[in-house]
């Protein structure tokens, strides 16, 4: 939208490291992307493409090697630490292991830029910490030690800490990296709610396309040559995802919005029957290298499978065999 303030904006930015002698080790140049207020932005890209370097540059941990990296219109490196800490908070990939640190104390560290030199929490600070803990669903965990809670709970506590810091921008480097599937969904969903309800601008990197497509408002896609941005749906339609991991073993399924492994289909099969069991039979056959066709043509059909759950009838070259599970169907087909 034109005229709306860009909370995070990169204009022709170059990210990288200073090498030993005056030269610069450029990770990626010419990055021009932005994020608006209240947006959940997912940063995706292959391993080693520079996602962490980009996030670290935006968080101000390392200087940009050229171009603009602007937070609320000001170069990130022009902020003083304390100023920046009131605008932007950060969560890294690293698992925090601190003995005897309670969830409450971890989250209250977020009040750092707001408290006095001694870090004394006022009643107001305590209320904010309580509220932050509640909004990530960790109520009742206040006095649990962070070393004795699950990875998912610890990650929620780290997010609660950024809420206690009360910043407009939150940057997270792979917040779902070590989590199981349900925790992945939950964390990304919490981020989505924080962005839409509290108007925060949240930028996170991830390898998990499905959750990112489902929940993020904007995506930054780091390709080998460039960084593209758009809504997940736009990026699927214009084919940017397809070029994300161009590999001979993978292809991007535009309908399902996910990558699939390319299979060499050598054999053909017809699947007959009704219901959800048919869909899963098709999946099992595809995995085992079958192309599913609708009707017999040119006489090359080898296998016909009739699904009458919980029974499968496999017809093949005048032979008929019955099975009570897809596992035994697959074993039978592979032995043929």
């Amino acid at each position: 939208m034109i005229g709306e303030e860009k909370i995070i904006a990169l204009n022709n930015a170059t990210i990288g490291y200073k090498a030993k002698t005056h030269s610069v080790n450029v990770v990626k140049a010419g990055i021009s992307v932005y994020a608006l207020k209240g947006e959940l932005v997912a940063l995706i890209g292959g391993n080693g493409v520079g996602k962490s370097t980009l996030l670290r540059t935006i968080a101000g941990f390392q200087p940009s090697m050229g171009g603009d990296v602007l937070i609320r219109g000001k170069q990130v490196n022009a902020y003083r630490e304390k100023e920046l800490a009131l605008i932007m908070s950060f969560v890294s990939t690293e698992i925090i292991r601190v003995p005897n640190l309670s969830v409450f104390d971890l989250v209250s560290l977020g009040r750092y830029p707001h408290t006095n030199w001694f870090g004394k929490l006022l009643d107001e600070d305590r209320d904010i910490v309580e509220e932050a803990i509640k909004s990530v669903g960790l109520k009742g965990y206040e006095n649990r030690m962070v070393n004795y809670i699950s990875d998912g709970e610890r990650q929620k506590a780290m997010i609660a800490r950024t809420l206690a810091q009360n910043t407009d921008v939150i940057v997270l480097d792979e917040p779902t990296a070590f989590l199981d599937l349900s925790n992945k969904y939950e964390i990304v969903h919490i981020l989505h709610e924080l962005a839409s309800e509290k108007g925060k601008t949240i930028l996170f990197s991830t390898h998990d396309l499905t959750t990112a497509i489902a929940e993020s408002d904007r995506m930054w896609v780091m390709l080998n040559e460039s960084v593209e941005q758009g809504s997940p749906e736009d990026l699927i339609l214009n084919g940017d995802f397809a070029s994300l991991f161009h590999s001979e073993h993978l292809f991007f399924d535009q309908e399902k919005g996910d990558f699939r492994i390319k299979k060499l289909t050598k054999r053909k099969a017809i699947v007959a029957g009704k219901g959800i069991a048919v869909d899963w039979t098709v999946k099992a056959l595809e995995r085992n290298g079958f192309e599913i066709i609708d009707s017999e043509s040119a006489g090359d059909v080898i296998v016909i499978i009739d699904v009458a759950y919980p029974e499968w009838t496999v017809m093949h070259q005048e032979q008929t065999a019955k099975f009570d599970s897809l596992l035994s169907v697959c074993r039978y087909l592979n032995r043929m």
Binding site: F61, E81, K82, F90, I96, L101, L109, Y112
Partner: peptide, 24 residues
């Protein structure tokens, strides 16, 4: 004793400490 607040922030490492506004 006067560095207590710094030390608390150092528990999470220097990057976190900086992101919370500490002059590392």
């Amino acid at each position: 004793f006067f560095s207590s607040k710094f030390l608390d922030a150092f528990l999470l490492g220097e990057n976190y400490a900086r992101s919370m506004g500490m002059n590392v």
